[in-house]
Design a protein around this nucleic acid. Structure first.
Length: 569
RNA sequence: UGCCCGAUCGUCUAAUGGUAGGACAACGCCCUUUGGAGGCGUAUGCAGAGGUUCGAAUCCUCUUCGGGCAGCCA
């Protein structure tokens, strides 16, 4: 056990930042002090493989693996696969990929609740033999009626007092497939009048003929989550079973099983799950968005799934930092999605190479620039990290600038290009707009004629002349065409769960731009690289749709836009 | 209506009986060849009422409000 475990102090995490303490760590510190688990910390992340992991799971993953790491313990991965009718290997695979991508490692500790099915069956037999479990023939509807309500106690099942022998015989017949699905269940015999509904003789085994992704057709009965989960933690020697708040009322039931079976007791600790505004987090709803094609798949860049965030351009570091700064507590919370976005910008600002890309091109012709001349201009790859070096970008007589960077009638405080006005071209010259060419029919601006000031080349002595604005550009003859996908929040209201969430879908959550012009260096971009398109945001290649001859970029997040704010006023 | 849990700036989160602090968001200003980044500054909070104490966000009581629980889901 390492020294810092004993003290209630902050730990260094791998990113060299202070990990803030939280109530879970305080409980662990206390347990270490009292030697409750012999100085050991052993956590687990227990997903059900019935969907893709989302940012809420990331919080739990960072918590469980993070705590294990900083206390010199370990963290298991365990699939809670007790309901074969909803589970699938596709999810088992994606879950592992996502956890690894986030930067965590379960080493050789990958487990499945289904590994324990034989053991679980034996434990159930043990309960029956102790007179603590019985086979009940009530159907689902009857069971519901017998259960009582929140304010009224339930009634004992008429099958509650079967003999041990009969229960054993029936349970074995359940296992051997002699009864119909749903015709009987095995129930714990606890207290039908308990104020805790979970203690009113809960079902612990149901008959279910479904092929399990691991055990195939070996079983016709499957343990319920409540029975399997706590016992699985016990079998694995977990010290601290960290889970979300809704399982708080289940803790007495887990404790009851462990006590009756006289086996090792982990300590369960419940924390509040993550909610993000402008999104939904329930697996059911995310599944619906996928199945009903509101999004392109689990990894649609607008989804709050790990795979969606990855495809969108998020980094593991940014998600880990996010998980850290939102904290861990018991009160319900809704985090501003702006904080997630901030975490990404903060990370990429330090690391992402800058490039120039014109999303909505407007042609600019320099009337005083030599016809066939091409200059190579030096540009800094990352002003936040000079060790990233420089690159050359070509400049020539015709370039593209951003349509938004020109206004024929500039409003006040518009520092960009307008007729008769000057602007700095990033890493190039100061230019002046001399005339505007429009489409005769539509009145649409089609090109600009400008002059450049040869004395103002970046890096030269006279380049110091000040102009108010600087804009980005791409040389027309050298530009590479690309498609760019601009994403906005998936929902248009802060809390889509407040009603029919699908009616709150943001109709303009995806805008596809097909005629973008990017600097030639981007031809060699790779899928896991992220770039800052100067003055616009952070982008990456789309891992599904981008092809060598047909680049597709996703916008991960916009840069902050002070002008947009000014203009709004 | 029963049981359980919770309540600190707009949003998160610290404080562990001794000056309510940080982050994001907001708003100013400075700086800037990214209207980016950065710097400086401003405003905003202990749900309410009692009690214990020299002293309470912290301990106790009541009230109010929010969340969870009545699957053979997890």
């Amino acid at each position: 056990m390492n020294e810092s475990n004993i003290n209630n102090v902050n730990e260094e995490n791998p990113e060299n930042k202070i990990t803030p303490s939280n109530f879970v760590r305080e409980i662990i510190d206390e347990d270490l002090k009292t030697n409750k688990f012999g100085g050991k910390v052993h956590t687990r992340f227990p997903p059900e493989p019935n969907g893709y992991l989302h940012i809420g799971h990331a919080k739990s993953i960072c918590l469980n693996f993070g705590i294990a790491a900083s206390y010199n313990g370990v963290c298991n991965l365990r699939f809670d696969d007790t309901n074969p009718s909803k589970e699938d290997v596709e999810y088992v695979d994606s879950i592992q990929e996502d956890i690894r991508w986030l930067g965590f490692d379960w080493e050789d500790r990958k487990f499945y609740a289904s590994n324990y099915f034989d053991q679980l069956f034996e434990y159930a037999v043990q309960l029956i033999k102790k007179g603590k479990a019985y086979v009940c023939d009530l159907n689902a509807q009857q069971m519901k009626e017998y259960r009582g309500t929140l304010t009224e106690p339930g009634k004992d099942s008429p099958y509650r007092n079967r003999s041990v022998e009969e229960n054993l015989d029936l349970f074995i017949k359940m296992r051997d497939g002699e009864f119909e699905d749903g015709s009987r269940v095995l129930r714990a015999k606890i207290d039908m009048a308990s104020p805790n509904m979970n203690m009113r003789d809960p079902a612990i085994y149901r008959i279910l003929r479904a092929t399990h992704h691991r055990t195939g057709d070996k079983w016709r009965i499957y343990p319920m989550y409540d029975f399997a989960h706590g016992i699985s933690d016990s079998i694995e020697g977990i010290t601290h079973s960290i889970c979300t708040l809704e399982f708080e009322a289940h803790r007495p039931l887990y404790d009851w099983f462990l006590d009756e079976l006289e086996i090792y007791h982990p300590q369960q600790i419940e924390f509040a799950r993550l909610n993000l505004n402008y999104t939904v987090m329930s697996k059911r709803k995310l599944l619906e968005l996928v199945e009903q094609k509101y999004v392109s798949g689990w990894n649609d860049p607008r989804m709050p799934t790990i795979s969606g965030l990855r495809r969108r351009g998020y980094t593991p570091e940014s998600i880990r930092n996010f998980a850290e700064r939102i904290g861990v507590a018991k009160r319900d919370n809704t985090i501003n999605v702006a904080l997630l976005e901030h975490s990404l910008r903060e990370d990429l600002n330090k690391r992402a190479p800058r490039v120039m890309a014109v999303l909505r091109p407007l042609k600019v012709i320099f009337d005083n620039y030599p016809e066939n001349q091409v200059e190579e201009l030096e540009a800094i790859n990352n002003p936040e990290d000079l060790s990233a070096g420089t690159r050359n970008i070509p400049f020539s007589k015709v370039i593209y600038i951003e349509h938004d960077d020109f206004r024929e009638d500039p409003p006040k405080k518009f520092f960009r290009l307008s007729p008769g006005n000057e602007v700095r071209l990033r890493y190039a010259y100061i230019i002046k707009c001399e005339s505007v060419v429009k489409d005769e029919k539509t009145g649409e601006i089609t090109e600009l004629h400008c002059t450049y000031d040869p004395e103002t080349k970046s890096g030269t002595a006279q380049s110091g002349r000040k102009v108010k604005g600087t804009i980005h550009w791409v040389s027309a003859q050298h530009a590479v065409n690309a498609e760019v996908r601009l994403y906005d929040r998936l929902f248009s209201v802060e809390d889509p769960s407040s009603g029919d969430y699908k009616s709150f879908l943001n109709q303009s959550s995806l805008e596809t731009l097909n005629d973008c012009k990017v600097e030639p260096g981007l031809l060699s971009a790779k899928v896991d690289e992220r770039f800052q398109f100067e003055r616009q945001g952070y982008f990456c290649l789309d891992s599904e749709d981008s092809k060598p001859g047909a680049l597709v970029f996703n916008r991960a997040v916009q840069l902050k836009d002070a002008w947009a704010k000014i203009e709004k006023k």
